[in-house]
């Protein structure tokens, strides 16, 4: 993968001097959050609220998948499976056992962690390309299972899922979603800049070298996978509460691929990038409704083009150290 600004001829690189200043600054996050919070004051029609809520949920999904694909370099083609596990677990508990939705969250956490272990446990020892296919297979297994079981409502799914606090206003729900998603984005970013986040990147870059430094590739991958599962599962809860219904049709391979698209387009491993990618992919189809037939074809071509021309994505991950870290003043002597 070539690093930011080394692509040469591409038009995007010409602005990279300015872009790098923007990419590395701290303000895009807060500005974006402010924009999200002000959104309903600009336009609070049901259509706009619906679009904004959906966009926020896809941001959370993209950020979660980025942990797996971007940070750790594992291609997960069945990410929608975790989304489904979260949505169905909370949906079933809320509708059949009348649990308040928030009370289902701990169960969802447990369920997604278990799903992560069950899927990741045996497969993360495999070569990376096998993993891609197996996750794809698992995505389909979960969808087909939801489709076939009675408890999940079969093909028509579950209806009547209450809101987060039990039937709140759509605006309230939107704000709750924004807060949760913002926390999820910050959480993923913080994990990325920590000891475990570094370990993910070491494994992504070179498993052998990482292992030689005592990083267990398997455990580190499993951690990434489980983290991704948790993010996806919680997004699933929001999704169910938003639509008040879940059905197998929302968890197709197509849906997994779209989340992946957001991550790749925005910039694998770049938290601001994938947020941007998710927003673009959620809003663009709405803006170009006349071209709806072209949508997925264009996505496919775009995936290829991004990989060929700009593999680091629109908003590349930062690989430089902060000036503070690059030159820490105090350097105690080496132990003798």
């Amino acid at each position: 993968m070539s690093a930011p600004g080394t692509g040469g001829a591409s038009g995007l690189d010409r602005v990279s001097g300015f872009a790098r200043g923007l990419f590395d600054s701290r303000w895009p996050g807060p500005v974006l959050l402010l924009a999200a919070l002000l959104g309903p004051f600009v336009n609070a029609t049901p259509y706009a609220l619906n679009l904004m809520t959906t966009t926020a949920i896809s941001v959370m999904l993209a950020v979660g998948l980025n942990i797996v694909v971007g940070y750790c370099g594992l291609l997960d083609l069945g990410y929608a499976a975790f989304f489904a596990v979260g949505a169905y677990t909370s949906g079933v508990l809320a509708t059949r056992f009348d649990w308040p939705l928030l009370a289902t969250v701990p169960v969802v956490l447990v369920a997604t962690v278990i799903a992560g272990i069950v899927i990741g446990g045996p497969t993360l020892r495999l070569r990376s390309d096998y993993l891609a296919i197996v996750t794809l297979g698992f995505g389909e297994i979960i969808r087909i299972t939801a489709n076939n079981l009675d408890v999940t409502g079969g093909p028509s799914g579950i209806h009547g899922i209450p809101g987060l606090f039990g039937g709140e206003d759509k605006v309230v729900f939107y704000y709750a979603t924004v807060v949760i998603v913002a926390l999820a984005v910050i959480g993923a970013a913080r994990l990325g800049r920590s000891r475990i986040g570094r370990a993910w990147r070491f494994v992504r870059e070179d498993e052998d070298a990482a292992a030689a430094m005592g990083v267990s590739p398997y455990r580190v991958k499993l951690a990434a996978y489980i983290a991704g599962a948790v993010w996806g599962g919680l997004a699933g809860v929001l999704f169910g509460a938003h639509l008040s219904a879940v059905s197998p049709g929302s968890f197709r391979f197509l849906d997994s691929a779209l989340i992946l698209m957001a991550v790749v387009l925005g910039g694998m491993g770049s938290n601001p990038g994938v947020v941007l990618g998710a927003i673009v992919l959620a809003v663009l189809p709405e803006a170009l409704r006349d071209l709806v037939d072209w949508q997925y074809f264009v996505f496919g071509v775009l995936l290829i083009l991004v990989m060929l021309v700009r593999p680091q994505g629109l908003w590349p991950a930062r690989s430089r150290e902060t000036p503070q870290d690059a030159a820490r003043a105090v350097r105690p002597e080496v132990r003798a």
């Binding site: 870059e205 070179d206 052998d208 070298a209 690989s319 150290e321």
Partner: peptide, 9 residues
Amino acid sequence: RLFGELSVL
């Protein structure tokens, strides 16, 4: 076997 894309630090 350095992590080529990552910073030296």
